[in-house]
Design a protein around this nucleic acid. Sequence first.
DNA 1: CGCGGACTTGACGTCCCTCAACGCCAGTGG
DNA 2: CCACTGGCGTTGAGGGACGTCAAGTCCGCG
Lengths: 248, 248
Amino acid sequence: MTTSCLAERLGELIDLSDSEKAALGSLELRERTLRRGVVLLREHDKAPELFVVRRGTMMSYVILPDGSRQIVRFLFRGDLIAMAGLVYRTAPETVIALTECAVASVDRAAVGSLAVEHPRLAALLIAVDQIERVALTDRLAGLGRTSAKARVAALLIEIRNRLRVVDGTGGDSFHLGLTQEEIGDATGLTAVHVNRMLRQLQDEGLIARDGGRMTFVNEAALLRTAHHTARDSARAAGVDLSWLPPAR
Amino acid sequence: MTTSCLAERLGELIDLSDSEKAALGSLELRERTLRRGVVLLREHDKAPELFVVRRGTMMSYVILPDGSRQIVRFLFRGDLIAMAGLVYRTAPETVIALTECAVASVDRAAVGSLAVEHPRLAALLIAVDQIERVALTDRLAGLGRTSAKARVAALLIEIRNRLRVVDGTGGDSFHLGLTQEEIGDATGLTAVHVNRMLRQLQDEGLIARDGGRMTFVNEAALLRTAHHTARDSARAAGVDLSWLPPAR
DNA sequence: CGCGGACTTGACGTCCCTCAACGCCAGTGG
DNA sequence: CCACTGGCGTTGAGGGACGTCAAGTCCGCG
């Protein structure tokens, strides 16, 4: 691995200086590999550690008092895990591996020094937070105001788009590593209803399924039923980082 | 106003140095006052400005393709508005005044220089983002997995708690400056059903209503029906900011 | 006095949940 | 080799929570 995952992620937004790359690289400490299903961090754990995803996909969720689960976020290469651990003494979410994964731990104090040594990177972290906040906002609107079918379609699209960035696979076919129950817990539905919605999307010719494999047959229609709004990320024209201070 | 709103907000987390207070104060530029209902920023606006709320309460929302509205966030004194404007060239949300308000605009480039001059403040901004992310997460779980009654109760509690911090009023009675339609748009319900839930909470003796005035009659029961989980904020024991770099 | 906006309440419809049964498949142990 | 098990997916029937539609009240305001 020539550059660190964080450098790779932030490098999608701007060109990093060599010393910035080095600083990000030295943030990532001990690597740890996880098998599918392993819990990296449990809700209410004391003094949670921070991590970066190096390989594989993970998810985070909360459990409500009645035992139901809400999946909050899916995590891919370069994502920071448990940044809330910077602030709270106790983890707000459980984080678990969906596939074979590798994560690197990040030292809290190192984030502080990073802000001193590389102010531009601190500013970039703020920017990344904003991007994620907007994504959370979109999911909030989906849960509050869209139909079951739209939510399922939106989830499929989101996962596909993120996998595409990570894998670099351009195809419309991908391996959705989620059970229908997990899809339900992410979209606020029951597994049974998720099944019906998938079947409906399939019967309408928007998607095709084969085992764990998922194919977008009519992507335009799928985007429409998901009420998808493209938010150009990365180097796209929609992003403006001209306010960043100079690199160090 | 002796200190700036931002300094006040961040000062709830740690003691700021004089030069930090001064730096935050100089971030806040032209003040602007807004009457109830005035739109400060509209979704899809180009090159949105950044603001801080100085006085009053505001909200932000998005409109979905079918015309329905999802209220994303309520904003109070010291909250940063449209931080997403740091990244995106076009505003992701509409921001509107719920009461008479005053806001101060913030220069994008000044945020960049702040990171250079006062790394600890940049790190604090990251911390504040995390606190808000966790709050958004809680709302997400509420929308996905709780009943209408729980959602309405949770909203009442959230608003009361935030007003309490701002007003310093310790009472259990407060002015909820929202129509039932707005409550519905925040909780993913219709105005009609919000009305029924409020009536039910009232009939069960959890709340009392008088005009726009709202009183918590049985707060413990209200917290329970909202599935409320206290996340100690501010200087509470639940927060750990020992990793911050030294002040400047 | 008329008007519009917010609140209230009832009747009815629908979307999604609940419960239940069944099939498929991968283990796993005999 | 087969029986047994548990997890996941699939489908149907029925019910409940919430939405829709409609009517009426109250209140502030021109």
